[in-house]
Every structure is written in structure tokens, then in C-alpha cells.
Design a protein around this nucleic acid. Structure first.
Lengths: 218, 218
DNA sequence: ACCTAAAATTAGACAAGGCTAAAAATAAAA
DNA sequence: TTTTATTTTTAGCCTTGTCTAATTTTAGGT
């Protein structure tokens, strides 16, 4: 069992590793966690002791298999709780992060297994990010922006890119939410606008909107 | 916002205060929290500084209004989460305590308000204990043991006294759960056994069982 | 009233995690 | 290559919450 602070470090390093390939620098971690580099050095040394990551002085760190698994577990919990908050408690997509940040540290495998089932084994969180499975594996994400689709392509809405209240209210009004099937009926090349089908409704959307919706095709 | 340790102290003192009237002793708190009396003295002094309780050296402590409210908030969260775990995630009544112990420390008023609504504004947790309202008020509990009821009385099952797996399985089999309406059709005085009605079914229960079920009449 | 036992408090230490200031290593620039 | 700037680490200190050991109060028994 790992402490709250340890879990947060692992999570941050996991995210940094997946973005910029190669070892993660001390300063990058400090930036991401809003803490001082000296604190990072201390913690990273402790995590190395515990075999959660490998650390070479002045050269940066990278997670071990155990570290990755542990981080993925935390991220899995975070994203499942986000689904719960949005789907069951009707929070908006942009209100759930801070709460999930707390809930992700509740320790109970059974709890997460049951929550997963209760939610219908979702694959994506409300921001369109994939939910790691119980072994820490993440499905290679197939998600694209709606704006990348062409005429006659279709997919399922899995999240939003930049979520602000106005945009989310618009989506509510159009009955677009996670899991909504969307088909592209037409696309204008000069402005990127589209005509899409959502349920029985067909309507026009601007490029700006199409660039803010994540779609899973496959 | 109070720390995890502070919240746990307040909760423990709240429970002790409601049991044994009068100021709560340092040793009693230490016992309840499985910690040392010296640690309790330290913490109690800090909580007194913060006006959460009044403390007189060698004489014990008692919660202030603020302390009581804070404790009741934590207990409210604990009990709402227990309802969630049992009603929604299908945990058994005796498996939820440790998990709720963690969930109760998640800070978000909005979360609790929505959870309360999602659960249908329950009045009791799965152990039959009343859930404080958002102002920290606890309804004076009307709960009795089923064994205290007499012929023709009726009420709603609000919890169990001592929960063990076998007993809970028995209740499952008889379709008795929280909220189940129970009527006493007959009662034998020489052994305390009863004939009760649950839904359409009528059956015999022993005194031992009647003494383990909490019923709310009113 | 006195003397012992129990309860409570204080003093000093420690681990986790964080910070600041200073030193050391690496990278960049001249 | 030497100097400068940046990054990283170390050293020392702080806070929270805990502990042990020693001391002080209060309570009980005769």
C-alpha cells in the first residue's frame, strides 16, 4: 500500500513519461506537481528504494513495471470515479477532476471491481481518456477529433477536448454525451463545418465544435 | 477544512459523548482510536485552539457546537457512503465500514448533496444508524429491536445489530433488507419467537433473530 | 488525612513530506 | 576550452502526528 504522496508522484511521472519519451527530469516533475525540485529529488530517491522507479542522479527517472502498474491503478480509479460522477451524479464533465483526485486514493480492490461493474465496464472517462483495465493495460486509443472524420464516417463520442460550461450546455441541448453515436453526413472543406446525425436529429456544427469533440471509431 | 486526523478525533469524541454523558476522558479517546493517551492530549490541545472542543486539563473534553457540526458532517458522509456501497454496489452490510472510513474524508459539499439525492435522501444507514442532515441534526431515532414489538405492530427494517455473514445471508433469503416493511402477526411470550409478515410471505422467526433486527416505527 | 494506584500531561524523539539556501554537476556559449 | 547559465542535489530546518519515558494530578483505600 502506498501513501497519497507516493501515488501522486507515480501518477505524475506516468503522465510525463507517456508524453515526452525518455527519462523524466526532476524539474518536469516539480512543475507538474507544483512543488520544488528538491522535494522531488527526495521523493524520487525513496521511490527508487521501493523499486517503483529507476533513478540515476542528474539523469532523470523512469518507472519500473511495478511503478507503471501502480500508477495505472490510480489512474484507473480516477477515471472510473469520473464516470460515476458524471453518469450517476450528473456532474458536468469539467467539475469532476478535483473530486476524483481525492476518490482515486481510496484503497479497496473490491470497491473498484464493483464500481466498474456498476458503471457497465466503461472504456473511457468523461474526457475521452481510456480507462486502464485491472492489470494496468491501456487499450491503444482510437480516439480522434470529430473534425478529423470525413463524410459517411461514424463513431462514438468519448469526450471533450477543452471543456467550458457553455460548450457543455450546448452539448446537453443537442443530447450529445459520452456514448452518443455520431455520423458525419456532410463536410464543407472551406470552413470545416459539418452536418452530423445524432439519434434522429440532423444538424449543422461549426469547425470549432468539431475540433472539441473526441470520437472513437473502430 | 480539517485534516484526516482531526476529523477522526472529532468523530470518535462525538460517539463517546453520545454514549457516556459528561466530559470525555483522554484514555477513553485513546482506547477508541487505538492510540496512546499522550497523542490524544496533544491533539486535543490543538483542537481546543481551533475552537472545536473545550478542554480542561485533567478533566476531559467536550465538543463545541462547531466541533459537533464538523463531526456530524463526517458521520453523515460515512453513512451516506455506506448506503451507496450496500444499495448500489451490492456489498453486504458488514463489509462496508472500512471503505466508508476512507470515503468519509473526501471533501466536497456538492458531492454529498448529489450523492444524497442519488440515494433518495435516506434516513438510515445499513446498520440502522440515522444519517445526520446537512445541518448536522440527527432525527431522534425511533428505532427499536424487532423483539421489542408486540402483536399487530409494524415498522420498517432499518438495520441489523450484530451482522455476520450467515445472518445476512438468511435475511437475503427472506428478502429482508433496508426499507422492508415488517408486521408482527404473532408473538410467543415463553420464548420470544414471532410470526411476521414480509411482503406476501408469512413466517416464523426465533427470538435471536428478532433481537438482531432494528425496526423504525412511527 | 495519607499513601498508593490510575489517569493525564510534558518533554524529547522520530518519520513523512515539504521548504530554503547553498553546493555540485551538466549543458550551453563564447 | 573556458566560462556562464541551468539543472539537480545536498544540508538543514519546519510541521503534523505519532511514540516512549518521566512527571504531575487526581482518585481510591485504609
Amino acid at each position: 500500500m502506498f501513501s497519497l504522496a507516493e501515488e501522486n508522484y507515480l501518477k505524475a511521472i506516468y503522465h510525463l513519461e507517456s508524453k515526452a519519451k525518455g527519462a523524466v527530469s526532476t524539474n518536469a516533475i516539480a512543475d507538474a506537481m507544483d512543488t520544488k525540485p528538491s522535494s522531488v529529488t527526495d521523493m524520487v530517491q525513496k521511490l527508487a528504494e521501493k523499486k517503483l522507479l529507476s533513478y540515476i542522479k542528474y539523469k532523470g527517472t523512469s518507472l519500473t513495471t511495478l511503478g507503471k502498474k501502480t500508477a495505472a491503478d490510480v489512474i484507473r480509479k480516477h477515471r472510473l470515479w469520473e464516470v460515476f460522477l458524471v453518469e450517476k451524479l450528473k456532474f458536468h464533465w469539467d467539475e469532476v477532476h478535483d473530486i476524483a483526485e481525492q476518490l482515486e486514493h481510496v484503497h479497496s480492490e473490491e470497491l473498484i471491481a464493483r464500481l466498474d461493474k456498476f458503471l457497465g465496464f466503461p472504456d473511457f472517462d468523461p474526457h475521452g481518456d481510456p480507462i486502464p483495465d485491472e492489470h494496468g493495460n491501456v487499450k491503444p486509443t482510437e480516439k480522434k477529433l470529430l473534425s478529423e472524420l470525413n463524410k459517411k464516417q461514424r463513431g462514438v463520442c468519448v469526450g471533450v477536448k477543452e471543456s467550458n460550461s457553455e460548450f457543455l450546455r450546448y452539448l446537453d441541448k443537442k443530447n450529445i454525451t459520452i456514448g452518443t453515436k455520431i455520423s458525419v453526413l456532410g463536410k464543407e472543406f472551406f470552413d470545416g463545418s459539418m452536418v452530423i446525425q445524432v439519434g434522429q436529429d440532423q444538424f449543422f456544427i461549426s469547425k470549432k465544435i468539431a475540433e472539441n469533440l473526441y470520437i472513437q471509431t473502430s
